[in-house]
Design a protein around this nucleic acid. Structure first.
Lengths: 234, 234
DNA sequence: TCAAAAGTGTTTACGATACACCCATGA
DNA sequence: TCATGGGTGTATCGTAAACACTTTTGA
């Protein structure tokens, strides 16, 4: 805080602070991104991440949670700061620093009506169109982040429904890492983490034989979230 | 950017954006932090990280480099964003979001006169006094970050002088990880990275026998910086 | 009966760990 | 000559990786 009291700064150098959310979901074997088509100027009709200015009396994190809830109806979503976007010229309109936040949501949980009401759509991560400002960069940065993070934190699990099968979990990690994994090694490793509770139910939607459903054993899962683990996969 | 054009926001919700630098150095076997004693109100006489408001026409990153250069005389320092600090009430004076940046500098490179002129001092990382606002939190967060980061990026190397010995490098990693390492395994691992160039010179300052000096083989070092590596150590 | 996905074990290779002694030198 | 830090090698263990066949069942 050099120059804290120099009047030069006071009043003069205030700017907008925004937060933009990179919202990931997982469905049909691929990672999805929630974006929306702007209905007001500027950038009317263009695709954009979901975001908002941060209000004067609001924490940055609160603003992100607010935006996410406004659009998806979801509270208490997994969300973490990505990084700030602070180029002086990033927004041609006026000076605005944006804090990028990435969120992982269970794609079946969100409020579909609310999403549609806001003009939001899920896009396959490999087919994201041009977005306004530096939003495409934010998406790329967020992808890099979750790919790295998935190696030492069980974040992938945030994207699955409450009950899921091991092949589903594998397809999720294949989507995150963008490579095929060996099912024997995958199953071995995942089960060795001791976070999965096998249920008596099967999911028959993807095969005649059906695959057993699992849930997370929550206590151990929380431990992994804080302590981290090694989940590098061939 | 929901509500982009709603007048409610325009003009009203602008705030200060600052950047604070968590500056690490390494000397005499321990990690050091550069902080300074404030000479103006508010917080006159209290210890603080070095920071500044971001100017309207300045990138956030530029602001951080500017501050660092003003204090240490150093340009092109290794510096990365830590995270933002965006609590609405973090600064009792007025609304200010700060972007924390951590920097690693070679402790012998900086401009001592300049540092003293600004009232800055190096503190052992285990003896950092109370700092203003949320600055102690920033330091803790930065420590967690570099401890993790040192496992997959060769960032520790940024803290050493151009020529250094392997025992010196080991003491650096011991300071970062806060644990003792086995010298045989450490040497083996470090040499296997193929980034060190053995010189014909010895440093005799810490032993009669002297230890060989090394430099970084820059090409390979840059490769590691971008690709990452595994440097977990017992 | 057969197509399609689920589920299962073993062997190999590599890197991590643990561990103890000799070397060089100046005081 | 001896105290001090520098430098070296090997055996063991555990985890990652590679790899192919059997099971189930609805159409």
């Amino acid at each position: 805080m050099v120059n804290f009291t120099e009047n030069y700064y006071i009043q003069k150098d205030r700017m907008y602070v925004a937060t933009d959310c990179i919202i990931f979901g997982f469905d049909s074997g691929s990672l999805k991104l929630l974006i929306f088509k702007r209905r007001v100027k500027p950038f009317l009709g263009e695709w954009s991440l979901i975001g908002s200015f941060v209000k004067l009396n609001e924490d940055v994190e609160e603003a992100a949670q607010r935006v996410l809830e406004e659009i998806t109806g979801l509270k208490d979503v997994f969300m973490e700061e990505l990084k700030s976007y602070g180029k002086a010229d990033r927004d041609p309109g006026f000076r605005c620093v944006s804090i990028g936040q990435y969120a992982l949501i269970r794609i079946n949980d969100y409020d579909k009506e609310l999403v549609e009401k806001h003009g939001a759509h899920w896009y396959d991560i490999n087919e994201v169109p041009n977005l306004v400002l530096d939003h495409n960069q934010m998406v790329q940065d967020a992808l890099v982040r979750i790919r790295r993070k998935a190696r030492y934190k069980p974040i992938g699990f945030e994207l699955l429904p409450e009950k899921f099968t091991i092949p589903q979990l594998q397809r999720l990690y294949e989507a995150i890492y963008q490579k095929d994994l060996d099912s024997r090694n995958f199953r071995k490793k995942v089960l060795s983490l001791n976070v999965l509770l096998k249920l008596d139910e099967k999911d028959k939607s993807t095969s005649r034989r059906g695959a057993f459903l699992y849930k997370f054993e929550n206590k151990r899962y929380r431990e992994l979230l804080t302590s981290g683990y090694n989940f590098e996969l061939s």
